[in-house]
Amino acid sequence: MAASREIFAIDALQNLLTDVYAAPVVVDRWERMEPWAVARVWLRSAATVPGSVVVKWVSGGLRDARTASWRLRTELAALQFLRHDVGTGLAPGVVAADPAAGFLVLEDLAPRVSLDHLLRRDGAAAHGDRLAAFARARGALSAATAGRAAAYYARRAQLGPVDPAADRAGRLAPFRVAGIEHASALGARLEGRAAYELASATDELAAPGPFLALSNQDAEANNILLHASGPADARLIDFEFAGFTHALTDAVCLYVPGPAWLTVGDPTTTGLADQYRHALALGIPEAEDDQRYGDGLAAACVSWALVRLQRFPLLDARPPGDHSRLQLIATLEAAAHTSQTHQALPHLTAWIRRIAAALRRRWSDADQDFTDPAGFPPYRARL
Rank of each mutant, 00 (worst) to 15 (best):
R5E: 15
E6V: 13
I7W: 07
L13N: 12
Q14C: 15
L16C: 06
T18S: 14
Y21C: 01
R29I: 05
W30H: 14
M33W: 10
W36C: 07
L43N: 05
S45C: 11
G51L: 07
S52D: 07
V54E: 11
K56L: 09
W57G: 01
R66Q: 13
T67G: 14
T67L: 14
S69M: 04
R71N: 12
R73T: 02
E75D: 08
L76C: 01
Q80V: 00
Q80S: 04
D85V: 05
V86Y: 08
G87R: 09
G89N: 10
V94P: 03
V95C: 14
A96T: 11
A97I: 05
A101M: 14
G102Y: 13
A110C: 03
R121N: 08
R121K: 12
D122I: 00
G123V: 01
A125L: 01
H127I: 01
A132H: 01
A135S: 11
R138W: 11
S142F: 04
A143V: 08
A144I: 03
T145K: 08
T145M: 04
A151Q: 15
Y152K: 05
Q158A: 15
G160N: 08
G160F: 13
P161I: 12
D163Q: 12
P164K: 06
P164T: 09
R171N: 08
R171L: 12
A185N: 10
L186D: 02
G187F: 10
G187H: 06
A188P: 03
G192S: 09
A194C: 04
Y196E: 13
Y196A: 14
S200K: 09
D203Y: 13
D203F: 08
D203M: 12
E204N: 05
P210E: 15
Q217I: 02
Q217A: 13
Q217C: 12
D218K: 06
A219E: 15
N223D: 06
I224D: 00
H227A: 15
G230F: 10
G230W: 13
A234V: 13
L236H: 08
I237W: 10
F241M: 07
F244D: 06
A247H: 06
L248Q: 05
A251P: 07
V252M: 14
Y255N: 12
P257I: 06
G265A: 13
T269G: 08
L272G: 05
R277M: 06
A279L: 10
L280Q: 09
A281N: 11
R292T: 10
R292M: 11
A300C: 03
A305C: 05
V307Q: 07
D316C: 04
A317K: 06
P319D: 14
P319K: 13
P320W: 09
G321Q: 08
H323M: 11
S324G: 15
S324N: 14
R325T: 09
I329K: 03
L332G: 01
T338M: 03
H342Q: 09
H342C: 02
P346L: 00
W351N: 02
W351L: 07
I352L: 09
I355P: 02
L359V: 02
W363C: 05
D365A: 08
A366M: 02
D367T: 00
P373I: 06
P373R: 08
G375A: 13
F376Q: 07
P377D: 04
Y379K: 04
L383Y: 04
